[in-house]
Design a binder for these strands. Sequence first.
RNA 1: GCGCCUGUAGCUCAGCGGGAUAGAGCGGCGGAUUCCUAAUCCGCAGGUCGGGGGUUCGAGUCCCUCCAGGCGCACCA
Length: 648
Amino acid sequence: MLQRKRFLVASVLRGALSDVFGLDHEPTVEVPPQRRLGDLASPCALHLARELRQAPRAIAERLAEAIDPPAGFDRITVEGPGYVNFHLDRTGFATAMLQAIPVAPSSSVDPLAKVIVEHTNINPNKAAHIGHLRNAVLGDVLARSLRSLGHATEVQNYIDDTGVQVADVVVGFLDLRDCSVADIEALPEPFDYTCWDVYSEVGHWYEADPERLELRRRTLHALEAGHGRRAEAGRLVARRIVGRHLGTMRRIDVDYDLLTRESEILRLDFFVAAFEKLKESGAVKFEDTGKNAGCWVMPLRGSEEFQGLEDPDKVIVRSDGTVTYVGKDIAYQLWKFGLLGRDFEYARRGNGPLWETAPIGAGGGPAREQAPAFGAGTRVINVIDARQAYLQRIVRAGVAALGHTRQADASVHFAYEMVALSARTAEQLGFSGDARLEMSGRKGIGVKADDLLDQLEAKSRAEIAVRRGDSDPAGAEDPDAELLARQIATAALRFFMARATTTRVIAFDIDEATSFEGESGPYLQYSIVRARNIRRRLMEEGLPQEVGPGRAAELPVEAWPDDLWDLVLLASQCQDTVERAATTLELSLIARHAVELAQKFHAIYHRHPILHERDADFRDARLAATQIFVRSLEALAGILGVPLPERM
RNA sequence: GCGCCUGUAGCUCAGCGGGAUAGAGCGGCGGAUUCCUAAUCCGCAGGUCGGGGGUUCGAGUCCCUCCAGGCGCACCA
């Protein structure tokens, strides 16, 4: 909403600079720090002072005189050292804001161009931990942002069900714990917790006798081949764990369109197809001698991007004929762009909207026509932590080496930093360490996602009980309170993950993450609950609960004091914020904008009561601002995946 | 060694292609509830923006350099 005004101001200024000074200058337009200074301002007079050999204030004054306030503006002033400031017609702008959609599909978006977002991608061999939650929340918020801006968006969750990590858990069950496949099947829930322990046990077991690593190799081959007892155990482990992971993500409202399985990529020979193309184009070559003798490698020496590497070649096919992860990932990436010339078979998972890749001719599987058209995206965003930046660059280089430069450019690695444990939290959990501690599934160090969510829900329940005056929170089986506890936990967790800048390591602190005060998910929720309560009270009093545009248009300027106005102006920047977040992949902008809105609302709530205000103009302006606030925060909360309850 | 990221209040962090008085949350101290729920609000204390150069009318922001920390550079993913 404000963006259009910004363009208008820029164009008016550009014209004046040309008319008055004969300059061709693109002025910057920003929002001044305080409302009394106006709503949009340009420091262009400061920029041009040297060139024009005039005092900035003098330039600004000449500009202000030369310009008539553009449509929607009241007046133009000169402020500070020489800013040209534009003051909006508050009544007119607020009336427009009442009717505006806070975050709408952008006209610059091609609704037919599909964006594929891949996220979560947890190895199906153990319980999800809080690092995985960061990935899932970022991916989900990104997908929600793109959808709200009008992008066709497809969310994929890649399941590496034939990798080393699954193999290790299979070894743990079959060889270390001497289980049968039936024994694994019979294990009680939480199965993923059991696997968490097995996985770290097997690591120690290998260390004690490195010859046992042969079992890993044998299992890995069995998983890739797809038959035998080990493969059966692997399928079982992966199937049960994926079910648990989906359940964990469902708790915080994270969903997917499609699960893609590595086993299907292998079975359908996606890599064979990709490999043919790579060989044809000369992107890979066979190494006869040297350290990579017997391997197919992708030379990276020529590329500027890979300067200074110790080994400028990347192995794609190992000397034993097996394919590296990068090789499979290149094939998968080509499929995502519709460049592979092959496709999966699909099956619906359960009765829900989620699909998964299915083995060819899977008995009784649904016909292929029923599945939506997956893949063939125009842009692909892989949400993967920053430690994998090197591999993601190689995947992109592989796509480029085949001559698909447009698709290589459209291959985006959404890199975020990892989640570590704060020193305090690590100590509380019994892990030694004086600094922050990196989580490690292999070592069994970490906070399980479900444990954190349980803790958040328990804390929510306790808070709710206190507020409702229940003496016995555990005994009260109030379904309404149960839902609310879940919503609060979801909000706390999602906001915590979304508000962190992607380039920073999160030092996960349990006390901070479970805080319901200050900059937190529940803080957002509470602000909306308060606004909704006003509405409810108005209804009870038999007063109108809404201000229509007609009424808003007749409010006098005095009804809009600076602090109330500031909320409206902030609300008018939701669209810009979401667009900027989606293009820069800095999603924390959305969380910060949401919390800033809530802060301003809470402050106004105390200063400007509505129910007890006698002046009708003041009351209606406040009510209109509240309406604008509610709609804006609802839009942002929807993108952040923060549920907004009716009461708290 | 090469590459990427980080260094701002006691702690966790914001600071939009340089711009108006460097902000918020937590923690500390002091206040606010006969009045739309105190998961809130208001006030106070707390800062050589890692160090040093440079560019500029103007630098937390750009350039150089140094220091400190994290991550990556496999026939693991």
